[in-house]
Design a protein around this nucleic acid. Structure first.
Lengths: 216, 216
DNA sequence: TTCTTTTAATCAAACGTTTGTTTAACTTTA
DNA sequence: TAAAGTTAAACAAACGTTTGATTAAAAGAA
C-alpha cells in the first residue's frame, strides 16, 4: 500500500492523505456532520482510531482541509494582486487563476461554503482570520479603481458578491448536473472563464460610472 | 398556551409553528445534521415525540421549511416577471422584492444554500424541481434582453451567478458580523438594494455589449 | 341535556443504533 | 530496545423513532 520505495512519501503520509482525500469527498457530498468516522475509515481502508491518531479527531480533518484550501487561496490572490497594476487586468488574472484552482479543489470549496455559517467555535477562529485577509485584498483592488473606499457599507457588500460570483457555479454544480444533463468539460470551463470575466468587469464598470455620475 | 380564544390559530398550529421556527433557527445556526431533535423539542417546549407526530420525522421539518421558502420565492419571482416589460426594469423590481424577502427569511436562505449540495434523495427531488423552474424564469429574462439563449452553456452559468449575487450577503452575514463590527440596520439594506441593482445591471449590460460586439 | 364513544393531542419512557473517542495489546520500523 | 504505527474491542453519550398510557376536546346517542 505504501510507496516507500519511491522515497517520495512515507507510509505515514500515505495514510494521512488517504484519510484526507476520502473525508474531503464525503464531506462535500453529505456535509460534515452527516459523515461518520466509520464511513471515512472504511472507504480509506484504515482503522478508525487512525483518525484520532493523525488528526486528533474528526474535527481535525475538517480543520486541515479548510486550512490547506484557504492557505492556497490566499497565496493565489496575493500573487494575482502583485502581478497586475490595473483593476481590470487584475480581474483577468484573478479569474484565469481561480477557475482552475476551484476546479481542482471543488470539494474544499463546497465544504468551506456549506460550513460557513456554522458555529463551531474552533473553526470559526481561523475562518474569520482568513476572511479578514480577503477583505483587505478587496480593498486593494477597489483602491486601484475609482470606487470610494470610505463608503461605509461598500466593502461588506461587494466582498461576498465578488467571491460568490466565482464559487456559485461550484456550489450549484451537483444540483445543476443532476437537474439538467450538463457535462462540465474543458469546453465549458473555457466559456465559463470568459463569461465570469465579462460579468465581473461589467460589475465594476457600472459601479465606477455610477459613483462618477453621483448616482450612488 | 394555545390562543383558541382568538380564533386565529388552533393549539395544534401553535405547536407546529413553534417547532418549525425553533428548528429553523437551529438549522441555520448549526446545520441540519448537527441539530438533534432533543435540542429542538427542548427549546420549543414540546415533547420530542411531537416532531414525529407532526412532521413524520426530523427530515419532515427540513422539508416543510424549504418547501415553504421555495414556494414563496417562486411566487415572488413570477409576479416580478409579470409586472415588468424591460429587462432592466425587471432587475429593479426583483431586487426591490427579494432583499426584504431574504431579510425576513434569512434562516431559510441559509438552510437552502448550505443543504444545496447534500444528497438526501428525498429532498433533492423537489429541490431540483424548483431549480428547473428558476432556470425557466431566467430564460424569460434573457429573452427580453439581447443575450442569446441558444448559447450552449450560458443559462447554466448565469443562473447560479444571478442567484448568488443576491443571497451571498446573507450567507456571509454571520461570519462578517462576527469578524467585523458591522450592524445590518435599515440604512444598510437601503444601500445594499441600490448596490445590488447597480451590480446586476452592469452585469447584464456588459454581457449585452460583449455579445453585440462579438467579443463573446 | 346527559351519557357514551371516538378522535386527536400530549407525555414519559424505552427502543435499538450510531456517534466520536479511548484503551490496551500487538506489530513494524529505526 | 525504544519509538511509531496499527489494530480490535469497548466506552459512554447522543441519535431519531416508537411505544403505550393519559388527557382533553368533539361527536353521537339517549
Amino acid at each position: 500500500m505504501g510507496n516507500k520505495e519511491t522515497g517520495i512519501n512515507t507510509l505515514r503520509e500515505d495514510k494521512k492523505d488517504m484519510i484526507l482525500k476520502t473525508a474531503s469527498g464525503l464531506f462535500a457530498e453529505k456535509g460534515f456532520s452527516s459523515v461518520g468516522i466509520r464511513d471515512i475509515a472504511g472507504k480509506a481502508g484504515v482503522n478508525i482510531s487512525m483518525i484520532s491518531y493523525y488528526f486528533g479527531g474528526k474535527t481535525g480533518i475538517l480543520k486541515e482541509i479548510l486550512s490547506d484550501f484557504l492557505d492556497k487561496y490566499s497565496n493565489l490572490i496575493t500573487s494575482a494582486i502583485e502581478e497586475s497594476e490595473d483593476t481590470f487586468v487584475f480581474i483577468e488574472n484573478l479569474v484565469a487563476r481561480i477557475v482552475p484552482f476551484f476546479r481542482q479543489n471543488t470539494e474544499a470549496v463546497l465544504i468551506f461554503v456549506t460550513e460557513l455559517p456554522v458555529d463551531s467555535s474552533d473553526i470559526t477562529e481561523f475562518k474569520a482570520e482568513k476572511i479578514r485577509g480577503f477583505v483587505q485584498f478587496l480593498e486593494k483592488i477597489l483602491a486601484k479603481s475609482k470606487i470610494p473606499l470610505d463608503e461605509k457599507y461598500l466593502p461588506g457588500i461587494i466582498g461576498p458578491v465578488f467571491f460568490s460570483v466565482i464559487f456559485s457555479h461550484f456550489l450549484f454544480k451537483p444540483v445543476v448536473s443532476k437537474t439538467f444533463n450538463m457535462d462540465f468539460n474543458e469546453d465549458f470551463y473555457i466559456r465559463y472563464t470568459q463569461i465570469i470575466k465579462t460579468i465581473l468587469t461589467g460589475m465594476l464598470r457600472e459601479l465606477q460610472t455610477s459613483f462618477k455620475n453621483k448616482e450612488l
